[in-house]
Amino acid sequence: MPKVNHLYTGAAGQAAAMSEFLVRGYNVAVPEVDRGDDLFVVKDADGDFNRIQVKTANARLLKKIGYIATFSISISQLSEPTTPELFYVLVVRNGTAWSDFMVISQGDLLSEHLRYQVGTRSGDNVLLRLNFRPDSVRSGSRDFQIYRGNFSHWPALLH
């Protein structure tokens, strides 16, 4: 797969994340001006909505098995609680396919960073490095498997 400008990769990841919500029956809105929230996911029946920040990374294959993906997350955005709560969708592109969607709330990710020292500070960002294996996702010593493909906050809707 030829290397693509990161803006295109990010836009592609956002579209992939949108697709995951749409296929579950949720509507998706994209702000006209980018002020930090990539998407709004809306449950049409009652108007409930969530704020979503999508981050996309290319997988870096490991020698034996698995791959690594690194995401950069704004510490100021991560630190500030909001209503509705912000969710992060971390999308991994592995070769020619979307291999993983990690879904984690702002509260949970902040807890992982502050309480368990997950991620490393780089200026105003936290660099979150995830190690993917077939049956596990880890960041350092922390197990992130529960967030893998976890769209349980958005159960499939019947229309």
């Binding site: 500030e80 609680p81 509260g107 309480r115």
Partner: peptide, 21 residues
Amino acid sequence: ILAGLQGAGTTYQLHPLSRHV
């Protein structure tokens, strides 16, 4: 307690380290 000020109100959330305590 962390306070995120928004246009219509503020969201309050316990700091993770305080939660641990």
